[in-house]
Amino acid sequence: MESNESPRLSRYAQAMRAMGEDYAGRPRPDPAIEDNTLIQRALDGEMEAFAGLMARYERKAFWVAFQVVGSIEEARDLVQEAFLRVHRSLDRFDFSRNFYTWLYRIVTNLAIDSLRKSRNEPRQVSGEGIDLPDEEERYRRTASPEEQERAARVRAVLDTLPPRFRTVLALRDLHGLSCREIGPILDLTYATVRWRLHKARQLFRLHWERSLPKGEDHR
């Protein structure tokens, strides 16, 4: 496996394996090692410990970012920026709080900022399938044309929602975080999260039904 790795990747391969990874390269961090332990070790200058933290949360952070911004490359950049910010501010981490709450907060804030910046450049979604930008075509999932069309419509509908509704919908309905967990991430009270989620679901449902071709009520 080592021989297939690029020099850049092999540099950290040993550390990755030490933190635990399966043969497919998917992170398999040792659950016995708590986040706070890894953070403390990272603060002591152990890059492997920070790599372990990344391995533990990078996937979830990426999907949150992707579900909010809808672009693979942008989501990747956002997550990378989020981890760089985490590393830079690690000495200010409050050990009485959850690490992932902090990370998700940075990721969602970056995603919302990114959406605001690109507000004047709406994504073009066609009915021909998932409309990924050219450079992201390689990530297209092999699915039936009907499924692709349906997924593209869902994406388009989600993109019509204001960022604050899109974020809460992504965290709750796509990620499965509880409203109690979402509160600190979005810096909202529990009641506000519940209200915003309710509103987001209403909006999504309304736009989704409007997006359906006439006469099509069901799949």
Partner: peptide, 13 residues
Amino acid sequence: ALALLKEGGAGSP
């Protein structure tokens, strides 16, 4: 429909 965008869904890369 929204769940299509979940990781591994038809709407996810």
